[in-house]
Design a protein around this nucleic acid. Sequence first.
RNA 1: GGCGCUAUCGUCUAGGGGUUAGGACGUGAGAUUCUCAAUCUUAAAACACGGGUUCGAUUCCCGUUAGCGCUACCA
Length: 539
Amino acid sequence: MVAQNESVKCSVDAILAAWIHIRRGCYHQTGMSQQKIRVRFAPSPTGLLHVGNARTALYNWLFARRTGGDFLLRIEDTDVERSDARFESQLYDDLRWLGLDWEEGPHSGQPNDGPCGPYRQSERLEIYRAHTEQLLHEGKAYRCFCTAEQLEAERTAAIAAQQPQVYSGRCRALSDAESARRATAGESFAVRLRIPDAPLRFDDIVRGPVEFAAEAVSDPILVRSGGMPVYNYVVTVDDALMGITHVIRGDDHLSNTPKQVAIYHAFGWPLPRFAHLSTILGPDRTRLSKRHGATSLASFREMGILPEALANYLALLGWGAEGGTRETFTLPELTQAFTLERVTPSPAVFDPQKLHWLNRHYIKQAAPERIATLARPAFVQTGWLPAQTDNAAIEAWFAQVVALFAPSVDQLDQLPQKARFLFALDAQTAAAEPENAAVLATEIAQSVLKDFAARIAALPAPVTPEAFKDVMNAVKAATGAKGKDLFHPVRIALTGAHSGPEFDKVIPLVETGSRLPLPTPVASVQTRAAQSLLQRPSA
RNA sequence: GGCGCUAUCGUCUAGGGGUUAGGACGUGAGAUUCUCAAUCUUAAAACACGGGUUCGAUUCCCGUUAGCGCUACCA
């Protein structure tokens, strides 16, 4: 209220001063001659970055990189209640993790974070106020003294009459003198934009020409009676002042766009190009949300989804490469292939299975040491690996463990479960498992195990794959067992399951692991074989 | 209710006035393996519906239906 009254008394000088401030900071962008493409990602720090917004950020970034333009970050924190600095810094981490960087914005590394700063809306309030003064001064906007009750009544009447909800325009007709008198008298007011009676049009890059009737927009509120500017207003002012040439955002903003177009018109600013991206849906075809499970970048990272897999998947979700037969793209490849014209307008269902397929693809492509580093913390947490990484032998061994299991995993967080038998094989529990029990109950299985254990025990300490193979052949000859009858009991004895990776790979890992100073000792092949004899179902 | 957006296999998509409507994920079958995974081969699987325009429409236009969004002094 107080601030508002002060601003009303604000002189033209003050407006000019604000303009000079703005122009000094951003002259080269607001000039008409500039050609350089500038896009922005403008999230609210009210929660974790989710895949929908991440895709929007990615498409903006891709477009900027493809065209040699600038990618800017702007924090929309005018909702003080819901905004949290914690989410803001998390946001930077998430974007960097995905592989995105930005020329301007908080933490851009530039002095002042860039020439068009500040990049937090909460720090730009003075700029908005100067622009509101200009609009009021030029008669492009007017004070609205209507109360919430009056507006509510109009709205319910409109709904009852099955008419569009439009503002009656009561305060539109107020004379300047009357308006000024009531404002000076201390009556509270909002500021509304005066919309000309003409259709509002724009050409959307993904949807084509779009037109809204002026009455559908009504005279939108620019500034609340508390003096706080509304979202559609500040977004437009910021986009214009920051020289944004292409507004790429979610299509939930499509219906907001005519309001913003009207604001551009009021200021006489050139319209940017708009590109409205389709919604990402859950399997039930409703907007993807927490209800559908993990949707934040942070959760995907924790699950062990590789950033390049997520970026690739998100790129494919709502965009089709020319030709339509290629599925895997690295970020650099995407910046070559991406065009806004090929963005699809229809909503897309998020498919975790395809994400997993891409993740497996990139896990196999990745350097084994990188995967080991990513997977390591989970193994420390289970107590299977030491927290320190100073033992080179352990690290080399662990890299082999990861290399063996990683190709068969959708997400890296499934690795500990896959490798569990190395560290924690409980012979009793394994034998009790129904499928295993059925195998072990047979006579042939018992004789195989008995013979196997005896032969393994007689071997010199580190059992080599070759020695193991010899033992298996000997057991085969002695017991007459072959194929599954031979391998399944042995596999259960050694790994606790009748399926798993090849013995050639498992044996060396077990033997090497058993000689390493690990927090949880790895049982050797011989120990495992000996224990298997204790599993006999009926003694 | 009003306004707007959208509509090709289950899913993501390519295509486009005349095509055997292509690819990928997933699914089924086979090969391989002691087994699982991986891999390879292979199969099934789509133009929402109704009207136009046209020699011809899945493609262009209109409508219907369905889904979604906006309809706030939220962002």
